[in-house]
Write a protein that binds this DNA or RNA. Structure first.
Lengths: 186, 186
DNA sequence: AACGGGTTTCAGTAATTTCTGAAATCTTCG
DNA sequence: CGAAGATTTCAGAAATTACTGAAACCCGTT
């Protein structure tokens, strides 16, 4: 398919962005192309449009399918595979976040737990260091818990929260303000 | 400085994590080391501990200083530079997010605006494609606005919100629920 | 079971990124 | 000013990552 200059700019930039987040350039470009394309494309069309090898397209599509960002769509009267990107921006965002959390944050939590235990037991790691590991573990666990709760909210509620911006602050109970539980009296 | 096995595990893992987020391994390892170290370290100590070249340490520290994650700390009676990592986890997180937003999200917004304008004017980009670019632009602008508001909240309020988890949903006004403004009436 | 269109795999090559060591520079002190 | 210690720079080496093309594979059709 023909890329208009606007599309080309978009695709190239997306490729760069991908690279900065450790998503390989071809993968990101293909994603961008499918996201923009007004109809499902075949692997070959993708290869031609982006001027990359057919085999590269194949591997990259496999990756995108694994992330759930692209799906195969059958097209009547054509036995080639056609591919189409997920279009809902919220859905795209949550898939990416979910996947990276699973691949990176969760393993990090395990390792931190292991480090914390080992440091507590080995009798040679400085107390300060131990506390730092434990503190980070706790911090990440809190964030992770928060994320698990928020991701479960219905989409419209999420959008509503977003729209409220900083105004949600109003609803944080005084007593909950960290470290201030007993502050009223003292 | 001597690394205990727990520290070594932590440092190595952090290096890997860095790599997956496009932070070079040495930079991430140095950050991890300084984060754990119970006292400020000299560049040479860092190089010895991690077994990497002195010059590499120098460049990496420069990077970490630029991110504001590490600072120089003078030590009485020693004219060498000593380095120390920022310890507050919230502060670390917000610095990283802020910096990456500035370097990656903001430029992306500019480019999307340019693409949207170009696509609207060129008379050859498919209507669907134009809408997709505009939709993404709007989506990212909303997120960006939300982030700007939330990052301005005082730390204790942020922590409070986090602790509330999904319960904040309760406070989203019905009328604000997206696309439902007129839904009450039927 | 052989053909043909389509797809995937993978070994080797190309490109990119990271790291090093030698040299240059800066800084402090006598 | 100049020596000694400390730091930074940078060209090239090493390591990593991405990409390609040829070959293998799959699967419906005849």
């Amino acid at each position: 398919m023909r890329l208009t200059p606007a599309m080309e700019r978009y695709v190239l930039h997306w490729g760069e962005m991908g690279a900065r987040w450790s998503v390989n350039r071809s993968v990101a470009q293909i994603h961008a192309l499918l996201y923009l394309a007004p109809r499902p494309l075949t692997a070959e069309e993708i290869a031609d449009t982006l001027a990359i090898a057919r085999s590269n397209v194949s591997m990259s599509l496999k990756e995108l399918l694994a992330w759930g960002l692209v799906q195969r769509t059958p097209v009547r009267g054509d036995r080639r595979d056609h591919f189409e990107a997920l279009r809902d921006n919220w859905e795209i965002l949550t898939r990416i976040v979910e996947e990276r959390k699973k691949r990176e944050i969760d393993p990090t939590l395990s390792i931190l737990r292991a480090c914390a235990m080992e440091a507590a037991a080995d009798g040679q790691t400085a107390a300060e260091t131990r506390q730092r590991i434990e503190g980070l573990l706790e911090f990440l666990e809190t964030l992770s818990l928060w994320y698990d709760q928020v991701k479960g909210l219905p989409r419209p509620v999420l959008v509503g929260l977003m729209r409220m911006g900083g105004r949600v602050a109003r609803f944080v109970p005084r007593a909950r303000v960290a470290g201030k539980r007993r502050a009223r009296g003292g």
